[in-house]
């Protein structure tokens, strides 16, 4: 199908984009990579009056390392992350995850900010923000505010962003010494959305795990931290008994919902399998 009619403006600055959002509150949509918004328009799931095209705002397309964090501009494309040497050195799980998002032609245009703003429960980046304890800078005419990812996702395609706000940048704290991480997802075909997927990170001193964080996607209405499983692994060596306890916790942690092809029981089982594989990779 074809998209409905709408007005279009290419924003030449972040300030202009915020002003337009404010002026047309509720009736305008930000157009970043367009890889989710344009399909939604084509299917007429969305009918905005105005598209504010920010895809040319190069000030929002960068990957910067500071003393304490990696800052990723909202317009950084999936392909930019896949190819970044800094990302690969500091957060190899993000390099791996980028390669699992859709297909090369879509990764060339889709952005990390767009994926987080959309908050698709099956998407990789929203879960990554939870596992790596990221925070997000939101901008509007009223100014900027920084929010922890932990409190950003509210439900299916729902976030804590106000109608006149946009996502400006993503902040990832640099890993503490001894941090290990692993990423994995289960799909039927390459490029599909995951049946279940997860990021796991933990600090390792000797063989003991601490500060374990496990974020799942594709199982519930929003990406979520598996807090029970995290607690079950902390203070252990990630041995078979600890993994079994963590796997048992997933029933309450995830409470999976069915998708078109998979029942909640399938999703729970596969999430348990995946968790064991990822914990083994922390070794």
């Amino acid at each position: 199908m074809k998209a409905p009619s709408f007005a279009y403006e290419r924003a030449e600055s972040l300030a202009r984009a915020c002003a337009l959002l404010h002026q047309h509150a509720g009736n305008a949509r930000i157009l970043a990579g367009g890889q989710s918004l344009i399909p939604a328009l084509n299917l007429r799931l969305s009918q905005p009056d105005l598209l504010i095209d920010i895809s040319q705002l190069n000030e929002l397309r960068h990957i910067t390392v500071t003393a304490t964090e990696l800052v990723v501009g909202a317009l950084t494309r999936h392909a930019d992350i896949e190819r970044s040497a800094d990302v690969k050195r500091l957060f190899p799980v993000l390099t791996q995850a980028a390669a699992q998002i859709a297909h090369p032609a879509i990764r060339n245009r889709g952005t990390m900010g767009g994926s987080i703003a959309l908050a698709d429960p099956a998407a990789e980046w929203p879960a990554a923000t939870l596992a790596l304890d990221m925070s997000l800078t939101l901008a509007s005419e009223r100014g900027e505010r920084r929010v922890p990812a932990d409190s950003f996702f509210k439900g299916i395609y729902e976030t804590g962003m106000a109608q006149d706000e946009m996502l400006k940048s993503i902040h990832i704290p640099l890993p503490a010494a001894g941090t290990r991480s692993a990423f994995g997802e289960l799909t039927r075909r390459s490029g599909d959305y995951a049946i279940t997927g997860a990021f796991v990170t933990a600090r390792k001193s000797g063989a003991t795990l601490s500060a374990t964080r496990i974020a799942f996607f594709g199982v519930a209405g929003q990406p979520l931290l598996a807090r029970g499983a995290m607690a079950a692994l902390d203070g252990t060596t990630g041995d078979a008994a600890a993994v079994a306890r963590a796997q048992a916790c997933l029933a309450a942690d995830l409470d999976p919902i069915a998708d078109l092809y998979n029942t909640p029981a399938t999703k729970l089982h596969l999430s348990r399998v995946l968790l064991a594989r990822l914990v083994a990779q922390l070794a």
Binding site: Q35, I38, A105
Partner: peptide
């Protein structure tokens, strides 16, 4: 760079 012609607006290629 390869892109999807159906997920790109003509005006975005200005």
């Amino acid at each position: 760079e390869i892109v999807r012609g159906c997920l790109t607006l003509a005006c975005q290629t200005h």
